[in-house]
């Protein structure tokens, strides 16, 4: 792949993670247990949408085929999305969404940190902006994990089950594919094995503080980065893309 093509594909993947998690969180709007949590969730999902817009716009520029952010978000089929399987998992109950956020954001914040130092100025600039938002998200979601894990007997049991269920989607975050390797070699991108070491430390510390047990020795699901998604993803896209599919070119 040419340098521009690597950047376009890599930025698209970053945009996909942000967009899909943002869309999942938007599904929770008006369903939060407390008003203050409602505002936090809506804010966070807008942060992700904003990041997706920047990544897609940048990807479109690198690609040079005239595609806009909307083309990336609304007019691509399922297999062209390269987000992690973790972010497309259904919201479930509050503990499920919290664990999903902790596992993903602990990784994402390390990835963005590495990207701020990469040799692709466009991506580094977006990462520098996004990391400020995500640092706060991690703080928020980690606090909730500790509260739930170290809360009542019921909340502890339920959030432990969430952790056990979602753990299998963490493996692919650290498996470098061809694109990760090209990004690392050509643009001094993130080294996923270094990120894995740091992630394990950070997550183990949060999980221990939450008095939960770290799952171990599980089979790991993968395929998101190659466009092979879980069965939940099609439904998410169908809802998100409905308007552009039914009324092509519709605008505000």
């Amino acid at each position: 792949m040419s340098g521009k093509a690597v950047l376009a594909a890599y930025a698209t993947r970053l945009g996909d993670n942000a967009l899909v998690l943002g869309q999942r969180m938007i599904e929770l709007v008006a369903a939060s247990p407390e008003l203050e949590e409602e505002l936090a969730n809506a804010n966070f999902s807008l942060d992700y949408l904003g990041q997706a817009r920047m990544f897609y716009t940048y990807a479109g520029e690198c690609e040079g085929a005239g595609r806009t952010e909307d083309d990336f978000a609304f007019l691509r089929p399922e297999h062209e999305f390269r987000n992690l399987l973790l972010v497309e998992q259904p919201n479930g109950h509050f503990g499920d969404s919290t664990v999903r956020a902790v596992l993903f954001e602990s990784w994402y914040v390390l990835l963005l940190d590495a990207l701020t130092r990469c040799a692709a100025p466009g991506i580094a600039a977006i990462a520098a902006r996004a990391i400020k938002e995500v640092r706060y998200h991690v703080r928020h979601s980690s606090q909730w994990l500790v509260r739930l894990g170290d809360g009542t007997e019921e909340s502890h049991a339920r959030v432990q089950a969430s952790l056990d269920n979602l753990w299998r989607y963490t493996g692919e975050m650290f498996v470098a594919d061809e694109l990760d390797t090209e990004m690392l070699d050509a643009f001094d991108g993130p080294d996923l094995s270094a990120i894995e070491v740091q992630w394990r430390q950070n997550v183990a510390a949060i999980v221990a503080k939450a008095t939960l047990a770290l799952p171990a020795g599980q089979w790991m699901a993968s395929g998101g980065k190659q466009g092979r998604h879980t069965e939940h993803f099609g439904f998410l896209l169908a809802e998100m893309q409905y308007l552009q599919r039914a009324y092509p070119g519709a605008e505000w």
Binding site: E36, A40, N43, Y136, R139, Q143
Partner: peptide, 13 residues
């Protein structure tokens, strides 16, 4: 529910 959450909620609100 606690002081930390109050600070977060204040920030978000």
């Amino acid at each position: 529910a606690d002081d930390e959450m109050a600070l977060s909620n204040a920030r978000d609100t």
